[in-house]
């Protein structure tokens, strides 16, 4: 098995499903992941979707089964639509799921107000509450796998169900920086706590950049850095909650959500309105012209 050069299906191409008899029109590429490509597609009846294409039938079937297992009206994951094969050489095996709007959390985070950040964090944890009820953990918690729809009241959705694992089993897919075991905080076993630690690490590392030599540090060094970083994190009021999560005293998503709920939403800094700006502007220009006039009068310039 080797890396195939990632050729993409051109927009406008129709993909004909062999088993369902449905057709999908490719609108463009949404992203290229470690194990496949995701395209924006429209089904022949106009239903928008996202088509995930993998090299092997097994991987497609596996991810499909994960989506099927965590689906539900309030599931944070995209709803599965169809799984199928086609004769197109770049879409031999694929499945189609709900197309989720929004941008990934790492792209929007810096533009969010503290209140919005807290709301988003709470929504993420609420999504985990839903997921954990099905007996599965997300595992690959990272900012790139969380979409926030700023235009739709900050609606939060999870993408990439590839890491979803039944509670108690070994985690298969994760990202080191959001992985509690990498930091020496918990075991690499799927459970509610593993996901909560992932969220806490992600939230922290969105604000504080980890050291460049992280991968060559021992677990003890990483943990020491973490303890320092959490104290120094810039002014987030959920610091103490993250600390509790990372210490292992919060073990279920509902408790995490309640703790986040209990802190008052920070007030968004008021936008300086235009009249204040006008006032300061005119004051400054008045001062400047007076100074120039005096300077001219005193023949300083």
């Amino acid at each position: 098995m080797s890396d195939k050069s990632q050729k993409q299906i051109p927009s406008g191409t129709w993909i004909h499903g062999k088993w369902t008899g449905r057709r999908w029109r490719v609108r463009g590429c949404l992203g290229v992941g470690a194990n496949g490509v995701v395209y924006a597609v429209d089904r022949d009846d106009g239903l928008p979707g996202a088509m995930k294409v993998c090299a092997g039938a097994g991987q497609v079937a596996f991810e499909w089964s994960l989506l099927e297992r965590v689906k539900g009206a309030r599931s944070p994951f995209p709803a599965p639509q169809q799984i199928d094969d086609s004769d197109h050489p770049l879409a031999q095996y694929f499945y189609v799921m709900e197309r989720v709007g929004g941008k990934s959390l790492d792209q929007v985070w810096s533009g969010l107000t503290p209140a919005d950040r807290q709301r988003v964090l709470l929504d993420i944890v609420a999504g985990l509450v839903q997921l954990h009820e099905t007996g599965y953990a997300f595992c690959d918690v990272k900012a790139q796998n969380i979409l926030v729809d700023v235009s739709d009241d900050m609606r939060v959705r999870f993408v990439d169900a590839g890491g979803v694992t039944p509670f108690g089993k070994a985690v298969r897919q994760f990202t080191p920086t959001s992985d509690g075991a990498f930091w020496g905080v918990c075991e690499r076993r799927a459970c509610a706590q593993y996901d909560l630690v992932g969220v806490a690490l992600m939230a922290l590392l969105l604000d504080v950049k980890p050291p460049a030599n992280l991968s060559s540090q021992s677990q003890e060094q990483r943990r020491a850095w973490l303890n320092k970083a959490i104290v120094q994190a810039p002014g987030a009021c959920w610091q103490s909650i993250l600390q509790k999560v990372l210490r292992g005293s919060v073990t279920d998503a509902t408790t995490f959500a309640m703790l986040l709920h209990s802190i008052p939403l920070p007030k968004d800094p008021e936008r300086p309105d235009w009249s204040a700006r006008l006032m300061w502007g005119s004051l400054a220009s008045a001062t400047l012209s007076t100074a120039c006039a005096w300077a001219l009068y005193l023949r300083l310039i």
Partner: peptide
């Protein structure tokens, strides 16, 4: 082979693979 099965049945085969892997 797995590929000869309808895709929805392949999912069930893959769940077996997942269990074996663990």
């Amino acid at each position: 082979t797995t590929e000869d099965l309808p895709p929805t049945e392949r999912s069930r085969v893959m769940q077996v693979v997942e269990k074996l892997e663990e």
